[in-house]
Nucleic acid binder design. Sequence first.
DNA 1: CCAAAAGTGTTATGTCTACACCCATGA
DNA 2: TCATGGGTGTAGACATAACACTTTTGG
Lengths: 254, 254
Amino acid sequence: MTTKTRSQAAPEGYDPSKFPAFAVTVDVVILTMSESRLHVLLVRRGVPPFQGMWAIPGGFKRPTETLDEAAKRELAEETGVDSASLLAQFGAYGDPGRDPRMNVVTVAYLAVLREVAGIVAGTDAAAATLVPVSAALNGAIELAFDHARIVRDAVERVRIDLELTGIATAFVGPTFTMAELRAVYEAVWGVHLDGANFRRRVGGEDGWVIPTGRRARPGSTGGKPAELFRAGRLWKQGGPIRYPQTTDKGKGKR
Amino acid sequence: MTTKTRSQAAPEGYDPSKFPAFAVTVDVVILTMSESRLHVLLVRRGVPPFQGMWAIPGGFKRPTETLDEAAKRELAEETGVDSASLLAQFGAYGDPGRDPRMNVVTVAYLAVLREVAGIVAGTDAAAATLVPVSAALNGAIELAFDHARIVRDAVERVRIDLELTGIATAFVGPTFTMAELRAVYEAVWGVHLDGANFRRRVGGEDGWVIPTGRRARPGSTGGKPAELFRAGRLWKQGGPIRYPQTTDKGKGKR
DNA sequence: CCAAAAGTGTTATGTCTACACCCATGA
DNA sequence: TCATGGGTGTAGACATAACACTTTTGG
C-alpha cells in the first residue's frame, strides 16, 4: 500500500551495497533410533552465548555453496558421516533477537541416520551426545537459541512423513526385518500396530519393501527367524501405513 | 571431520563481526483461482538485473521483523490485501549466484487469496498481472532469478496440501458451494471428481464444511440453487478428499 | 517339550465408486 | 415443459482390523 511497485528489485536510486546484513546458518536436526526410541544428536556449546548448553549442530553458510551442500558439510563435520539416509530442508527461522550477537537467519535441515554406532565417536566425545527426543521436547534438556522449537518442528515433520513417504526405511539398516521397520512407526507415533496387518500392507505385491531371500537369526530368546527386506519403491505420497484412527467403533470417520 | 566441535558457536578466538554477509529476502508466491484455473501474481521488474522480466513479489527482510511479518508486509505492499486466506513458509533458496549482485538467501512463502477483483488494482496496474500457473511453469512466461523453480515448488506444495489440509477453502469465498470447492481440486489436480461422492466426504457429520442454510442463486441457465457452506474444522492431516488412484480395476492398491 | 517370535488365514465390518434417480430453477 | 445443474440412494467391489492359527527357532 505504502511503497508500491517494489518487487524484489530496489526502488530508484537504490544502492545494492545498502541492505540489512544477515548471517545465514544451516542447522541440522540429526535423528536416529536407539533402544527403540527416537533420539536426537546434540552438541555442547563451548562459547557464549548459551555457553555450556546443548544445541543442534550447525554453522555458517558459505557464499560459494548451496544450502544443501552446507547441510551436508555440517553433518559430516559433526558426525563423520559422509551421507545420511535422508537430508531434507524443512524450515527457516529468523525471529529478531534469536541470536543475541547479530541478525541470523537459520535454514533448518532434518537428517536421518541408521548407523548409531560410531556416530558420536566421530566428534569430540565430551561435546556430542545422543538424547531421546522426549527429553529435548519436554524441557528436561534445555536447548540453546530457539533450538527446542526447531527440534519440535523436525519431529513433527517426521511424524507426518512417516505416513506420506518412505522415510521409515531411512531409520533402519540397508536390510531390515518387518519388526524393525514397524518399531520405527511405533516409536515415533507412540502406538501399537498389528504385525500381521503391517506386513500385508508394506509387503504387498506393489513393492514397498523387497524380500532379499535371506533371514535374520533369532535373538537369544528364540523365535522364528525373520525375513530380511530392503527398501523398495520409495513412495512420495500416500504410503501403505496410515496413522491409526480413533477405533471407537462406527462413528468418527477420520 | 576437519574442524570438530564447531557447533553453531564459533571456534576459539572468533570475531562475531566476521561472518559471510547475506541479504535475506522474503518472496511470496500469490495464488488464486481465476476462470477455473490456478493463477499466480507476477510483477514486472523495473530495474536490473532481469529488468523488464516478470518475477514474484518480494523484498528484504528487516532485522526488526520476523519472517512471517516480512511476508505479510510484502503481501500488503504488493496487493493491498491486509491478510491472505493463507500465508505459509514453504522453502528457502540460497544457491550461489542466484542473484548476480550479491549473496542472497530467499525465504519463500505461499499466499492464497480468494478475492481476485481489485488485487492487481492495488498495485501499479502496468507492473502487476495475474497469469495462469501453467504459463509460468511451461516456460511461456520467463521468470527472473530462480523464480520459476520457486513457483513450481509452491504449486507442488498446494497439490499436496489439498489432500492433507483445508487449504482448498482458502481459494473460495467465505461462503461457497460444493461445486466451487470441488472446482479447486479439479483445477489444481487436473482430474474430475464425482460430485455426489465429493459432497458426502466433505459434508459428512464431521464438519469439514458447515451448511449456512442459505442458497446461491442459479446461473442464467437454470438448475437447482446450490447450498452455501462455510469452512468448518480445518483438517491438518488426512482430509476427506484423496487424490484419485489409478482406477484401472483390481490391481494397483495405491 | 515349551516359550517366543514370525508369518498366514479368516471374517465381520466399514468404506468407496459408479451410476441411477429425484429436485428446483430459468427460459 | 425442457434443459440444466444440485442433491440423494444404493449395490457391488474393495479395504480394514482383530484375532486365531501355524511355523521355526532357542533353551
